[in-house]
């Protein structure tokens, strides 16, 4: 099936040489992306996936929006303060692209829910605040056999890694023990959006079959010092998550 004239018009600025072919755009339309959660990084990531034309975007995020979220959570607004994030964020995403189906889960998925969601998806974007949740999504993506993109931030810095379990290091290879959790971490929204958008770009490349994804690498963006680096990640043979693959 081809793109409709309305879809061709919508995506005209991203179709062509050096960006997406029509077949690549169709690949996006056939794809489902799971983004959890959709705060500072997951919000911009989900927005960019929706605007790019990923056919189905599933977001997961619990709780109500609070005022301090609005330095970085681009799917929120003053009108959503004290209201549940997930349904309002989903409405906003739907308002941005009529060609995309947006579903939401109004809580953080459990182990079994994460696996079920990953099995319905072609890619998982991991953007939660705790390593426990990140490692859960990593296990789910590994079992489901789909790529995972992990986006993280602190202050004016961020990291992003792209995993294809069995072929590259997974998150648990890199973090054998969950590092400490810091609930009230400092962050400037500009780094959240930058890292979230880069995660979306990797997802768009992978789903559409365009360019060279950063599989097996961690991109580090040190906005404080003005430094960007790439780290080649090493698999752990005895990794409890991907060791047997």
């Amino acid at each position: 099936m081809n793109l409709s004239p309305a879809e061709q018009e919508r995506y005209s600025r991203q179709l062509g040489a050096g960006v997406l072919s029509e077949e690549a755009q169709l690949n996006l339309r056939r794809s489902t992306a799971l983004v959890t959660r959709v705060g500072g990084m997951g919000g911009p990531a989900a927005l960019m996936l929706t605007m790019a034309g990923v056919g189905r975007v599933i977001i997961a995020h619990g709780g109500d929006l609070i005022s301090p979220d609005l330095n970085r959570q681009v799917l929120g607004s003053e009108a959503v303060i004290d209201r549940p994030r997930a349904p309002h964020f989903a409405d906003y995403l739907r308002s941005m692209n009529r060609f995309v189906e947006v579903d939401y889960v109004d809580h953080e998925p459990s182990d079994s829910e994460a696996l079920e969601l990953a099995c319905k998806s072609n890619i998982v974007l991991s953007c939660p605040p705790t390593f426990e949740e990140r490692l859960r999504l990593n296990r789910a993506a590994t079992k489901a056999g789909v790529p995972l993109i992990d986006a993280a931030q602190w202050g004016m810095t961020g990291t992003m890694m792209v995993v294809r379990a069995g072929l590259t290091a997974c998150l648990q290879c890199v973090y054998p023990q969950p590092p400490p959790f810091e609930e009230f971490f400092p962050v400037v929204g500009a780094i959240s959006s930058a890292i979230g958008s880069l995660a979306a770009l990797e997802a768009i490349k992978i789903l559409s079959g365009t360019g060279n994804p950063l599989f097996g690498k961690m991109l580090t963006y040190d906005g404080f010092q003005g430094r960007v680096t790439t780290m080649e990640l090493t698999r752990t043979e005895a990794c409890p998550c991907c060791g047997g693959l």
């Binding site: 959660r37 500072g40 993280a152 931030q153 961020g158 590092p179 971490f185």
Partner: peptide, 10 residues
């Protein structure tokens, strides 16, 4: 030599 204290965020 790069030393990177893991970050998460959200």
């Amino acid at each position: 030599l790069m030393l990177l204290a893991p970050v998460a965020g959200g």
